[in-house]
Every structure is written in structure tokens, then in C-alpha cells.
Nucleic acid binder design. Sequence first.
DNA 1: CCTTCAGGTTAACGACCGCTAACCTCCCTG
DNA 2: CAGGGAGGTTAGCGGTCGTTAACCTGAAGG
Lengths: 214, 214
Amino acid sequence: MATRTDAPTRREQILKEAARLFAERGFHGVGVDEIGAAVGISGPGLYRHFAGKDAMLAELLVGISGQLLTGAKRRLAEAGRVAGSTTGPGAGSGAGPEAVLDSLIEGHIDFALDDRPLITLHDRELDRLRDSDRKLVRQLQRQYVELWVGVLREVYPAVAEPSARSAVHSVFGLLNSTPHLGRSGSLPGRGATAALLHRMARGAFAAVAEDGRG
Amino acid sequence: MATRTDAPTRREQILKEAARLFAERGFHGVGVDEIGAAVGISGPGLYRHFAGKDAMLAELLVGISGQLLTGAKRRLAEAGRVAGSTTGPGAGSGAGPEAVLDSLIEGHIDFALDDRPLITLHDRELDRLRDSDRKLVRQLQRQYVELWVGVLREVYPAVAEPSARSAVHSVFGLLNSTPHLGRSGSLPGRGATAALLHRMARGAFAAVAEDGRG
DNA sequence: CCTTCAGGTTAACGACCGCTAACCTCCCTG
DNA sequence: CAGGGAGGTTAGCGGTCGTTAACCTGAAGG
């Protein structure tokens, strides 16, 4: 998460290209030879860096989920509040839950715009993992969702928990739609796109609250 | 689109099971033997009904896109208005564009809730098609999107066209999130889920209009 | 009763894929 | 200047997959 200035290592190159290829053609649709070719080496040379094709996917997916969760926790902490305590409502100290929600949305949008292949993989190739890895990824994802649900219900206390959870999943679907927004074509600049997505996410959440005790 | 009462033909069984399997494990992740086993026959027996595995996927994707577009056109026509004319604005006769938008949303939600595997395939396995089929599907999808964009801009005339198109894609992402909403688990009933999604879609669109000349 | 044909079956082929084995070649270090 | 490990290479094995070939069967029709 630290700002990197040095050149990317071979391992990172491989992961990046593998992510792009997996997103484009699916995990089973890409051969190890193609991944190797994408970084200038060929075929089995990858096995000097990874235990196998599965290991690349696992590292990608665990990395994505962990990065999302870590970023969200950091943003929640930066708001000067205490996260994760399930002890009950009313514990919020101050610093505007609305601002925290905005920060979460902003973070997710940044990720969706900067790492489109990863966001594609994230909800597409999960079932191709070994059981243990899949469980880990799902656990990280669940924590991420629950973190959002908690913040959302502080902003809109009237919304029941199942509705809040569904709403969060749906807004993820909205924010993760970036790969479909013109292949770097007509979209009116990154900033405008981010602003648009942010406004829509807030609008969708607000609509849940209007008569939203489901 | 007519209401069917007779038993499904073997071809339809195959398509349905293939859709489910493709959605679960990806096109390349499913073998023809599995598809055959899912309908009680085994392996190469499928070739009495389809030219090959690719043909099944093609028929599924073309069918989905066509069904969505046809349904949307019908709903637009049922509102007693004229569709598709690019001759300019101001041609709307009456019957509330808001109602048309609601009808489009309702139709898409019905599809997303009733045919989750298909909605998953729809934006996931498109690149596995032969060029001609892929072009056809993309053309149908584009018409569908443009139809939505037209209706949306009648409801919110201040929204610029690129913003409207992005907004439509994003709302599709929201509505298509149904596969992630609990594997038939805790979601509070089909009707409530549909209503929630509908409200969120409207809220997202409304938020585009608020200061939304992007 | 014979034919035909739709809709199956199993066997097998050829291609491809993930992975390993064996080998090579720098470059760094003592 | 050894030498050893990091990071490549090519050859090839074993398994899987899509597809075809050849054969079977039961029901419909004249």
C-alpha cells in the first residue's frame, strides 16, 4: 500500500499480466504460455516464481480482497472512530458517518477505476480457487461488506440489516460496472466518471432509506 | 415470449443446464460430458441437437440479448408511444416517460431475478463467441442500452448523453448484482428484493440528474 | 413386416494444457 | 577465479477436452 517508486519486480509483472489475461478470457481460457509471453519469458519459466497457475489466481484474489478491506479499515480509522465493534449502536463518537460512507465509496471507486482487471476477477473467478483460499477470500469479502453495512446503518438507522446488506451488494455491482463503461473511449474523463459513480451510489443508498424498512 | 404450458423440449433442457453450468464454472470450465450428464444423456449425444459447444453459448447469448431488447421494445410500445425514432426530442406524445422508465426497470429486474445464470453469462462470456455472433450480440446490447438512454433523457432532459449512457451501464451493474444477493438464502422474498432494486435504480438515476450535466 | 429415422450409445482420435525434467547461462560473492 | 544460485530454455509426459465415427434401438408409417 506504500507509494512505490522502484521498478516492478518480475513477480509483479507476471501478476499484472495474468490479471489482465484472466479478466479478458477467463481463468481456463488462458494458457501459461500466454502469460509467460506477456512478460517476455516463455511458458514454464513462470514456475520459477509461482507454484502453478492456481497460485497466481489465488494470490491475485487474496490480494484484492485484502487490499479492499485494509483500505476500508484505514478510512474508517482515519475518521477518528472505532471500527468493527459489534457491541451495538450509539457507539459512534462523532466525525460524521456520512463522511465515512463517502470515503468508503471514494476508495472503492478508485480501485474500480485503477484496477479494472482485478475488479473483474474479484467476483468472477472465485470458484476456481482451492477450498482454503476460497474460504479466506470469502471471509475477507464478508468483512468488507459488513464494514459497509455498519457504516450504512449509521447513516440510515431505519434500514433493516438484510436490506442494508442487499443494498451494499447492489452498489458494489454499480461501482464495479466500470469495465463496461467504454473501453477507454468516450467516457468523459476519470474525475467526471468517479463523480458520477459517487453520486449514483449515494442516490441508490438514499433511495433504500426512503420507506426502506424491508 | 408466449406463455408456455407444454413440456420443455430436450434442446431447451440442454440450454438451461448449459447456462447454469457456464455461469457457475465458466465456459472453458465446463465439459460437454457434464452438460450431457445434467440432462441425463452423456457426452457426444449433445451433438444431435447442437453443432458444438460454441453453438450452445452463441444461442444462449443471442437469445438473452434478443429477449431483453424485445421485451424493452414491447414495454415502450405498450406505453402508447413511438420508439426508436432518432429524429429528435419533443416527439413524445404523452403517457408519462417516468412510467416507461419504471417499466423498463421492472422488466430488467424480472429477468435478473428469474434467470440469474443467464444474466451472469450475458456480460461474462461474450468474448468466447465467434466474430459474427459477437457482433450480433453487441449490436442487440447496444440497441438495448440506447433505448434506455432515450427514455432516461426524456425523464431527465438536463443529463448529457455520455453521462446518461454511463448511468445506464452502471444501473445495469446494480440490477445484475442479483447473483450476489445470497444464494437463495436470507434475501427477504422476491417481491421485496425487486422493490428494493427498483427503488435503488430510480435513486441512482435521480442522483445523476442532480447537478448532472457531465 | 419392413423401413426409416430421431436420438441415443461407446470407442477413439488429435489437439491442447499444466507441469516436470534436464540443461544452460549469467552474475554475484568469497 | 572457482562456484553456486537465480532465472531462463526446450523436450516431453500425462491427462483432459471437443469432436467424429460407427453402431444400436424403439417407435412411427405405409
